[in-house]
């Protein structure tokens, strides 16, 4: 049964945990890159709500919400992002490499690698865990990766119980995906023998029902499915995405880039003026596209679900306060785990 209150709680928890992680990153308590799934909550929660013990999930570099939704403690995830000894993986993996053997949940920073891993999880399920399934999460950029296309075919050929979930925000790092992708992704999956569907990832209820059908198919031995879900990711590819910074602080961020850019456009030697204009036009279009990804409430899966909840205002306030407190508690646990002088750790 679709339980809107429970789904809302899950989505809100993901949002708040990832916001907390973003805060820690800004403060310099998390090093390196940080890829979050803000804007994708409807997809993550709508699919993973169907998973239980013995089901497996292969995540990409954007796996914090997936781990959370499979039941990994928020504090363990936050601590892992901070590289702490008592984090989920002892501080060895970091946010791109989260692993929980108990949950059969693995992630990887290599684009497309969730496909083969999920096939392996599904093969093991065929042998060892009848009726169990594997889910692979990846972006539309990964759909151009050979290993992912190969795993679609393998899953079809071997009737593997896999659900391939493509989270499509239309942009592969900074590249417009349609500009580097031939054909449609659902047709591509179908061409490889995997039936596919294309839905909006903003409405968790739609995702939930579609995933239910596809996972039932897999559990009953009818093989893999492909679910393409569209979403907007307001933070871009990763926190500190230069394109997002250009949109928010155009003067500060563009200034150091403009000089070299103008001189490149004007220098002798190079393409024709028409070709140079075409290139500049595409750069401006890239920045414009980024500006349009800012999450208005119409594209925010958490706010959309909130609007549709049929509970009293008091109950809603209670639920939201509970989520805030849970996340606050996890954050406090993580901060308490910082070794003395730990703030220097990432410096």
């Amino acid at each position: 049964m679709f339980d809107s209150v429970s789904l809302y709680r899950k989505m809100l928890t993901c949002r708040r945990v990832e916001e907390a992680i973003a805060g820690l990153w800004q403060e310099g308590l998390i090093s390196g890159e940080m890829h979050l799934g803000i804007g994708e909550e409807g997809i993550n929660a709508g699919v993973l709500d169907h998973l239980g013990d013995g089901d497996a999930v292969a995540l990409d570099h954007r796996g914090t919400a997936g781990m959370l939704l499979r039941g990994v403690e928020a504090a363990a995830i936050i601590k892992e992002c901070m590289g702490l000894e008592d984090g989920l993986c002892g501080g060895m993996g970091g946010h791109m490499h989260l692993f929980s053997k108990d949950h059969l949940a693995a992630s990887s920073g290599i684009v497309g690698s969730a496909g083969p891993t999920a096939c392996g999880f599904a093969l093991a399920a065929q042998h060892l865990r009848p009726k169990k399934v594997a889910v692979a999460f990846f972006g539309e950029g990964a759909m151009n990766q050979g290993m992912l296309m190969e795993s679609l075919n393998l899953a079809a050929a071997w009737d593997l119980p896999v659900l391939f979930v493509c989270r499509d925000n239309g942009t592969a790092i900074t590249t417009s995906s349609p500009a580097v992708t031939g054909g449609s992704l659902e047709e591509r999956a179908r061409g490889l023998g995997v039936s596919g569907k294309n839905i909006s990832g903003v409405d968790v209820e739609v995702v939930w029902h579609e995933a239910a059908v596809m996972l039932d198919r897999a559990r009953s031995g009818k093989g893999p499915s492909f679910l393409r879900t569209t979403c907007l990711r307001p933070q871009g590819h990763f926190l500190g995405d230069p394109l997002i910074r250009m949109v928010h602080k155009p003067v500060a961020e563009m200034k150091p880039r403009t000089g070299p850019l103008v001189s490149a456009a004007m220098s002798s030697g190079g393409a024709s003026i028409a070709q140079r204009l075409a290139a500049i036009t595409k750069i401006m279009a890239m920045i414009g596209r980024t500006a349009r990804t800012q999450l208005g409430s119409a594209h925010d899966p958490v706010l959309q679900m909130r609007k549709k909840l049929k509970i009293t205002a008091d109950d809603l306030a209670g639920l939201e306060e509970e989520v805030e407190l849970t996340v606050k508690d996890a954050l406090e646990q993580a901060l308490q785990s910082l070794p003395a002088g730990g703030e220097e750790a990432t410096k």
Binding site: V111, G112, G141, A142, N144, Q145, A172, I173, T174, T175, A179, V180, T181, P242, L243, R257, P260, L261, S263, A264, A265, S267, G269, G270, A271, S272, Q275, R276, A278, A279, I280, K282, I283, M286
Partner: peptide
């Protein structure tokens, strides 16, 4: 990958035929 952003200046100067973004 992303050469239009990584090599924005070359992309502008030499055009997309010579500085070409690729899929992943």
């Amino acid at each position: 990958e992303d050469v239009h952003a990584l090599r924005m200046n070359l992309y502008t100067r030499f055009g997309e035929k010579r500085v070409r973004p690729a899929p992943i």
